[in-house]
Design a protein around this nucleic acid. Structure first.
Length: 154
DNA sequence: GCCAACGTTGGC
DNA sequence: GCCAACGTTGGC
């Protein structure tokens, strides 16, 4: 299987690229995804070593803030069983967990590649996160788009 | 705070 | 299985 690429949104108030880099092994569990499409990417498609664009959302300057990689195979998201968590899901059973996540290891912080600049870059046309109305927190990124973005971040 | 887009829920 | 109501995401 060749390496695939992803864009993963995180609210920096929750987990920023700095938080991820400060975590043990620069690795964080991608907790809290409660959308089946995004879950399925983590559960069925991602492979350890896949490239990840670490995206800051719902903040003053949304955009790509760092480079990361998929660091684990999928496993159940513990927060779904934690009554005190905002991500608690009473309908999810221990024997058949509904929500799955992967670990993500931050590799480096980059300059912020903001949404407006991304929109202004013709080579990034078609990038899923730029599509109007897109709310999906995990989207695949083509190898071509990945290369363009890496270059912009250099 | 507004609102467009879209996912989920539940009555029928 | 349809679809209206409702909830959430996330940019602005």
């Amino acid at each position: 299987m060749t390496k695939q690429y992803w864009l993963m949104k995180s609210e920096p108030d929750e987990v920023s690229i700095d938080d991820a880099l400060a975590a043990p092994k620069q690795t964080v569990a991608w907790t809290g995804v409660r959308n089946y499409q995004a879950r399925n990417f983590m559960k069925d498609v991602m492979r350890v070593g896949d490239g990840v664009l670490f995206y800051h959302s719902s903040c003053p300057e949304p955009g790509i803030a760092g480079i990361a990689e998929v660091a684990s195979t999928p496993y159940p998201d513990p927060s779904q069983f934690d009554r005190k968590s905002p991500y608690f899901d009473a309908a999810s059973k221990l024997e058949s967990p509904r929500w799955t996540l992967v670990d993500v290891r931050a590799l480096r912080k980059t300059r912020l590649l903001g949404l407006p600049e991304m929109r202004e870059t013709p080579a990034l046309a078609g990038l899923l996160v730029l599509k109007k109305g897109n709310r999906l927190s995990i989207t695949p990124v083509s190898a071509e788009h990945w290369r363009v973005i890496e270059k912009l971040l250099t």
